[in-house]
Amino acid sequence: MSKVLVVTSGKGGVGKTTTTAALGAALAQNGQSVVLVDFDVGLRNLDLVMGAERRVVFDLINVIQGDANLAQALIKDKRVPSLSLLPASQTRDKDALTAEGVAKVIEELRKKFDWVICDSPAGIERGAQMAMYHADMAVIVTNPEVSSVRDSDRIIGMLDSTTEKAKKGEKMEKHLLLTRYDPQRASRGDMLGTDDVLEILSIPLLGIIPESGDVLRASNVGAPVTIAEPESAAARAYNDAARRLAGEKLEVTIPTERKGLFDWLFKRRVS
């Protein structure tokens, strides 16, 4: 049973591409076959975050238009063999994403992989619509900040109304991933807390990714944080989130940087 997952947010810069890369790599490291599909036509970045920018020959649009077949366009990850990437086009515009073309590609990918993870562009336009249309489930990436929460609410509304699942009258499985979370600022009352965001958006929590320099370090070297810094707090949070996606029941905690026994013993518990 393969799953099509869209990573979306509405707002830009909240960590969709980072999340796509990290969750995909974590699922692949757990033995699942995973393909990451970049839907950000014109502004592709997933290839760069994955360290595959110099290996792109064909892209999603080439496959849709029949200039290349899927096998030619897929880039196999060199670190995790069961992980592949289908890059977006950097030169075409979003109109090249036709509904039928995308449907055909997704259908083909479903046959080949356990997980098809679609990295949505920011906004609510065609690219974002196409990325979410065929999804079985969605990860909504949200920062604990007013504009991000508002945009997430808008995207949740779209997931419930404009997707294939919604049109069939089925329920879209939605998960909230809170990123760039700072437990200290939240406990001081200067950042929206987990409970606040959950109360407002009322969808289940997939995980909390703490604000961490390791995420930037990983993207600098072109690797998902779960591969580049597997022991970091952010990577452990992503790993747990990936296991929850795969159906495991794990308590949601905010991992802290491992400094010693003390930190480990007093790992913060939430919800």
Binding site: E145, G157, D160, S161, T162, L192, I200
Partner: peptide, 27 residues
Amino acid sequence: RSSAPVARDRLQILLAHERISGGDGKD
């Protein structure tokens, strides 16, 4: 005053309105 409760209240009021006037069928 901590700012998070202000943010939460503002969001709740705003989203209550936006959900009503949102463009999709259900709303």
